[in-house]
Measured scan of single mutants.
Amino acid sequence: NQESVVAAQLIPINTALTLVMMTTRVVSPTGIPAEDIPRLISMQVNQVVPMGTTLMPDMVKGYA
Rank of each mutant, 00 (worst) to 15 (best):
R25F: 06
L17K: 00
M56N: 07
I11V: 06
P38M: 12
M51K: 12
L40H: 00
M51N: 09
L55K: 00
G52M: 07
V49F: 02
Q47S: 11
L17H: 00
Q9W: 05
Q44P: 09
A7Q: 01
A64S: 14
G31D: 00
P29T: 07
T18A: 10
I32F: 04
A7G: 03
N46T: 14
A7K: 01
V20Q: 06
S42A: 10
T24C: 04
P12M: 13
A16P: 08
V60N: 02
P29E: 11
V60T: 01
P29Y: 09
T54R: 03
P57V: 06
R25M: 09
E3H: 14
Q44R: 15
T53I: 10
D58H: 14
A34G: 08
Y63L: 11
K61D: 14
V27S: 08
V48N: 15
E35G: 09
V48Q: 14
R39S: 13
Q47W: 04
S4M: 03
G62E: 13
I13M: 13
A34K: 08
L55S: 01
N14D: 13
R39L: 06
I11E: 00
T15N: 05
M21H: 13
M22G: 00
Q44K: 12
P38N: 09
M56T: 11
V6R: 03
E35P: 11
P33A: 09
A16R: 10
N1D: 04
S42E: 08
S28C: 03
K61C: 03
S4H: 03
R39W: 05
L17Q: 00
V48M: 14
L40E: 00
N46A: 11
V26M: 08
P50I: 04
E35M: 10
L10W: 14
M22L: 15
K61H: 11
E35R: 13
D36L: 11
A34T: 13
D58I: 09
Q2K: 15
D58K: 11
M21K: 04
Q2L: 08
I37A: 09
V27C: 03
N14V: 02
V5A: 07
S28V: 14
V26R: 10
P50N: 09
Q2N: 12
V20C: 04
R25A: 08
V27P: 01
T18M: 07
T24H: 08
N46K: 13
A16G: 12
I32N: 01
M43S: 04
D36S: 15
T54L: 07
V45F: 02
G62H: 05
T24W: 05
N1C: 04
S42F: 07
V5F: 02
T18S: 06
L40P: 01
Y63W: 14
P57T: 13
L40G: 00
Q44G: 04
V20N: 10
V49C: 03
Q47L: 06
V27H: 04
Q9H: 07
M51A: 15
L55I: 14
Q2M: 09
V6M: 09
P12F: 04
I32W: 03
A8V: 07
S4W: 04
E35K: 15
D58R: 12
V26K: 11
Q44L: 12
M22Q: 01
P12Y: 06
V48C: 04
M51F: 08
V6N: 01
V49R: 02
P50V: 09
Q9V: 07
A34E: 04
P38E: 12
G62T: 05
I11Y: 01
M22V: 10
G62F: 07
T15S: 14
L10T: 09
A16Y: 11
V49I: 15
D58S: 15
M43V: 05
M43H: 09
R25G: 15
S28M: 08
R25I: 05
T53D: 11
P57D: 06
A34I: 08
A16D: 05
T15H: 07
L55G: 00
P12D: 11
V26I: 14
P29I: 11
I41P: 03
T23V: 09
A8E: 05
A64C: 07
P33L: 08
I13V: 15
T30G: 11
A16C: 04
L10A: 09
M59S: 03
V27G: 12
P33M: 11
D58F: 10
G52T: 05
Q44I: 06
V48S: 12
E3S: 09
I32Y: 03
A16Q: 12
L19E: 13
A8Y: 05
T24N: 07
N1S: 14
T24P: 14
I13L: 15
V49N: 00
G62A: 08
A34Y: 05
T53M: 10
V48K: 09
I11A: 00
N14G: 07
M43W: 04
L55M: 14
R39F: 07
V60C: 03
P57I: 05
P12G: 10
P29W: 03
A64Q: 09
N1H: 15
S4C: 05
G62P: 07
G52W: 13
T24K: 14
I37H: 03
R25L: 08
L17W: 01
E3Y: 12
M56P: 01
L19R: 11
G62L: 10
L17F: 02
S42P: 02
P57S: 08
M43I: 08
A7M: 03
I11G: 00
M22H: 00
T30C: 04
A16I: 05
T53H: 10
R39K: 10
A7V: 03
L19F: 12
A34N: 06
V20I: 08
E35Q: 12
V6S: 03
D36R: 15
